[in-house]
Amino acid sequence: MPPPRLLRRFSVYGDFWTRFMEWGVRHCPGWLEPLFVGGWSVVFFLVCAPQRRALVRNLRAMFPDRPPWAAWVGAFRVVWNFAWTLTDATRAGGGQDIIDWRIEGLGAFRELAASEGGGIVLTAHMGNYDLAAPVFAGRFGRRLNAVRAPEREAELQRHYEGRRKGQESEAFSVRYNAGGGMLGVELAALLAAGELVALQGDRVLFDVSPATGCLFGGEVRLPKGPFALAMASGAPVWPMFIIRDGWRRYRVRVCEPFEMRGARGERTRVMRDGIATWCAELEEVLRDSWFQWFVFEEVFTGGRGGGR
């Protein structure tokens, strides 16, 4: 029997902790912020056992040569960085201009801004993707539609929807992959209308169709949707990552685009090649910034190699 609704609000996926954190950030003297962030990171690291185990297993699969304790320290670094990105997002979301942005891959960024027609921005759960999208959306000359998985708890979903409504503009909108199977059609229509669609390509949540890729020599489950959309629409895919470089400093890394086109009989190969290209880009970023990969589920399936 699921726990009562009131209790679920206090779970790690509930809205209580998010609201509490946002209230704390608003009222906390800035010079005490590292103490609060550090302390709560420890609390969540200790309490959230399934997420901690998943982080440790992912890190062990990524770096099998490192000693076991390094994966535990690494898992804490992921939680610590996640806490900082949430804190920064809360401050910036409240209207404070406190974040330095830097673009890596300026050529690709300019190419994306100058390009016409639809395009898919493929990103990962890193840094502060929630924050970067509204900041840079105005530079692309067309609307950027960010697609998000809904939160597990309805209260938290309502809370975030309200917060994100304030970020929406003519240049930026948020859509939720709430099931029903119509999102793909909607996104294809947006791409055909020449708009940009931002999707996350590193995490399979809920009933999203999975595909298999290869990261760090291991088999991983990735969402199939972004690649199927790229094939169906013919739109170019721009891998883009948001990386936290330090104290209130973030970097947007824009990679060269790739396309997923091919004849009808080549669909399997095109899909495999597209996933392999994405995995190569993701792995390159994760090799240096693994401690910012905010994936709290196991992504490695245990197999070795291959992309399908």
């Binding site: 800035g30 404070q96 201009d97 406190i98 974040i99 330095d100 942005w101 830097r102 673009i103 890596e104 300026l106 960024f109 900041v135 330090g246 104290w247 209130r248 400093r249």
Partner: peptide, 13 residues
Amino acid sequence: VEGELPAARRGSG
């Protein structure tokens, strides 16, 4: 600087 978007009030880490 091109490619950089400095914050108005970032503070000191």
